[in-house]
Simulated assay, not measured.
Amino acid sequence: MADSRATAPRLRSLDALRGFDMLWIIGLSEFFIQLAEITKIGWLQTWAVQMDHVAWEGIRIHDLIFPLFMFASGISIPYALKPKLEAGVSRASLLRTVIRRVIILIVLGILYNGGLKLVGYSEQRFASVLGQIGIAYGVAATVFLFTRSWKGRTAWCLGILIAIAVLQLLVPVPGHGAGVLTPAGSINAWFDQRFLPGRPHEWAPYDPEGVLSVISACALTLGGLLVGDYVRSWEKPSLTAASRILIAGTAVFFLGWIAWHLGYPPIKKIWTSSFNLLAGGICTWLFVVFYLLVDFRPQPNWSFFLQVVGMNSITIYLLERVVPFADISGFFLGGLASKSGHWGPLLITTGILLIEWLVLYFLWKKKTFLKV
């Protein structure tokens, strides 16, 4: 008899979590920044500070948006691949599908960075957010396909974290020495200057999606894979599963906190292992919250608004790059905004979010999803 989990429904909490994450990218962060600036309310101003990246060391809420998406990408792997394995699809065939997705995401990332401008090789940025998502997904999915046990997959995750920490803390960088975690002195910068094709982001000495950053981020996607595989092993939503994942996430977070206080700070721009641990712990907590609030309560489907975004998250990420949503919002709401005083920009931002959601709702109604 076939395993009933081979036809398991989508993990709605994962779609909602992706949608929640993507909303901050496409306008919700700006909404709160503007609201804080207008109202001058203390807690909103404190929150608005969290809507921007730290300059270098440390971690803010905005620093978690990209890691959360990568973590969610890892959770999706068992739900995408395991039913096909159980249905008898060969690992080699699935690996070809994985490689295809990696290549498409890398190409989309280059296009997102302005690849169609046809600038010279040295002026084109090849590293990208989508490329990093694709490569990390490819590594995690390959590990999932060819490493059968959770212990082996955990070993891969830990191995990456340890290897990155050793490189960043113990391997001397010519002209700087070992353990110099600065933009120019880090080993990430040394690798990017020698092995990263094209130019780095903003012509910095390193690229935040550079060679070692991508490798390091694979650990976060593998962490999501471990969570997703464990959740899927339960035939229905389980408080036991949720509590165990929560405990594991807490342990991971405190490992990162200890590393930070021992002198290995979280730095997202070079993806230190301490950052991965802190981000991984927080991402795990967020997933558990959505798991409890969404999958344990099939009705009413309060998270539908988020799921519409989450099911086409890459679509809206790309559309925001090429579609002038601000101009569209201004066309419909510009007159009202001009008569709203200092509330005008907030009205335009609200319109942007609404228009983006309506576009995604239209795609959802048409059952049109970007699958790569």
Results as ranks from 00 to 15, higher is better:
V309N: 09
I75H: 06
D52E: 13
G74Q: 03
I316E: 06
R12K: 15
F146A: 04
R125T: 04
T250Q: 03
W56V: 07
D52W: 00
V102F: 08
V322I: 15
T240K: 14
L23F: 06
A184E: 15
S186R: 11
S29N: 12
G335Y: 07
T147R: 13
P205W: 10
E320M: 11
R125A: 04
F195T: 02
F325A: 03
S216D: 09
I61E: 00
G249N: 07
G281C: 07
I160A: 07
R100D: 08
L111R: 01
F290M: 14
T142N: 05
S213H: 02
L360I: 05
L28D: 01
F253D: 02
D229K: 09
K40C: 00
I282R: 05
A178V: 11
V180W: 03
V308P: 00
L35V: 04
G330R: 13
K236H: 13
R194D: 05
G198R: 03
G152L: 08
P266V: 07
G335V: 00
L105S: 09
L293H: 01
L353E: 10
F126L: 01
V359R: 03
L333E: 05
F296E: 01
A165E: 11
T147I: 15
L85N: 00
P174H: 13
S4Y: 06
I316V: 15
L262V: 04
S149W: 07
K269E: 09
Q50A: 05
S29D: 06
P174R: 09
G344P: 08
L44Q: 01
D295W: 07
D327H: 11
G177D: 11
L95A: 12
I352E: 14
L196A: 09
Y137C: 02
L94M: 13
L158K: 00
F331S: 07
A242F: 00
C157F: 06
G228F: 05
P174C: 10
G344E: 08
V119N: 04
P298W: 11
L277K: 09
L347C: 07
A204S: 13
H342A: 14
P237S: 14
V323W: 09
I160K: 10
H201E: 11
K117Q: 14
G179Y: 10
W150T: 15
W302Y: 14
L346T: 13
P237D: 12
G310N: 06
T284G: 08
V288M: 07
F290P: 00
F290W: 12
T350H: 02
V49C: 00
E235F: 01
R12P: 00
L28A: 15
L64I: 05
G310M: 06
P67T: 13
S128V: 02
Y317R: 01
G177R: 11
L94A: 02
S13L: 03
L346P: 06
W302T: 12
K365R: 15
S122R: 11
A141E: 07
S243W: 12
T221Y: 03
Q34E: 14
L196R: 01
G341L: 10
F20P: 01
T46P: 00
